[in-house]
Amino acid sequence: MTATNGKTLRLHMPQWQGGNLEEYHLSSKVLSWLLPASRGPEEIVPVPSPGDSPAPAIEDGILARKALLDQARAARARFRGVSLCVREHAGLEEGEMATAKLHGVELVKGQRWTVRVTAYGTTLTFPFEAEQFARSYADGQAFRLGVEVVELKDCA
């Protein structure tokens, strides 16, 4: 989808700690450079480069929890007051909140870990080999969507 109305926010956040791959920081910068110029507002969330940060550690069962939450809060603060295009796609007016039925994060334990993220009624599923990565991802998505993680056990 190409937005031409100038209302799409481009948020550049070179976050690498959650995936514990330093390459994500550089890849994010390369991707930003490759993208065509934005027609709407652009915001950059400062994320310390891997060389300037301590190695991520597990905090409360989540890899780099404090860094991830700090970055998510910084991102949220950057777009307060900006009318985001996702509101238009969901049919919401400025200041109106989506209902809880449109959003959700499920952490499913089976033979592998799975995170199901529902945003604006669309659900995507992400498989993980390690519990810590699944929990870290689920926590970040839940924070972004303003919901709680629901933990399930796959009984199949």
Rank of each mutant, 00 (worst) to 15 (best):
P50T: 06
K29V: 08
A75P: 07
L102V: 10
V150E: 15
F143A: 11
G146V: 08
Y120R: 09
R87T: 02
K109I: 06
Q111T: 14
E129D: 12
R87N: 09
L31E: 14
P36C: 01
Y137H: 09
D70V: 05
Q71P: 02
A100G: 07
T118F: 04
Q17F: 09
T4I: 10
A142T: 11
Q141K: 03
L21V: 06
T99C: 09
L63K: 01
L145I: 04
G146T: 04
V147G: 00
A119R: 08
L92R: 10
P36F: 04
T123S: 07
F128E: 00
A55M: 09
P41V: 00
H103Q: 09
G121A: 07
L68I: 11
K109D: 07
R135A: 02
Q15W: 11
K109N: 08
A134R: 00
G121D: 05
P46V: 05
C85G: 09
L31S: 11
V30F: 06
H89C: 14
D52N: 13
L102C: 05
R76I: 11
P46E: 13
R39P: 00
A37I: 10
H12N: 12
A72S: 09
A64W: 03
E59L: 07
G19P: 01
P56N: 05
R144E: 13
R87I: 02
